[in-house]
């Protein structure tokens, strides 16, 4: 398919350029802030204000670069995996069994023989396992 050969430029390969730019901007912002404080010490308020704006703008730019969407390589690229369980019940002795889903399982299927009595177990539910809440 044509989509497989179409190059998509940019992305993760540009990250080192961004990093270098961030270091330069950070250094300039630091110098600017230093000079701002020095000017403030010399009671040159207007000049100090100007330097501090430049310094703060530099740090805001760095902050933006950090919090913007991350490159694709950091994103989970694979489709989600699901932990699906099958519940079997014996209509005769009410024995209940839960096991991992297997291909071919379906709700109301007469499945494996009951381990307690002579009956056949029926699949009564198939669903994903409840996710445990993160503490």
């Amino acid at each position: 398919m044509s989509g497989e050969t179409t190059p998509i430029v940019g992305g993760a390969t540009q990250s080192w350029i961004t990093l270098a730019a961030m270091i330069i901007v950070g250094a300039l912002a630091l110098v600017s802030l230093y000079m701002g404080f020095q000017a403030y010490g010399n009671e040159e308020i207007e000049i100090a204000f100007m330097y501090m704006i430049i310094g703060t703008s530099g740090f805001i730019a760095i902050g933006y670069a950090f919090f913007r969407p991350k490159p694709t390589s950091m994103d989970p690229l694979k489709p989600k995996k699901f932990d699906v369980i099958t519940t079997l019940e014996c209509p005769q002795c009410n024995l209940k069994r839960v096991r991992a889903f297997q291909r071919g399982d379906y709700i109301y299927k007469n499945d494996e023989p009951c381990t307690r009595c002579e009956g056949k177990m029926i699949i009564t539910s198939i669903h994903t396992r409840k996710e445990e809440k993160k503490k």
């Binding site: 998509i8 940019g10 992305g11 969407p69 694709t72 994103d75 690229l77 694979k78 489709p79």
Partner: peptide, 14 residues
């Protein structure tokens, strides 16, 4: 464009 590109990469994988 960069954000679209990021998403496009993900969609291509899927």
């Amino acid at each position: 464009l960069r954000q679209i590109e990021t998403t496009l990469r993900k969609i291509k994988v899927l």
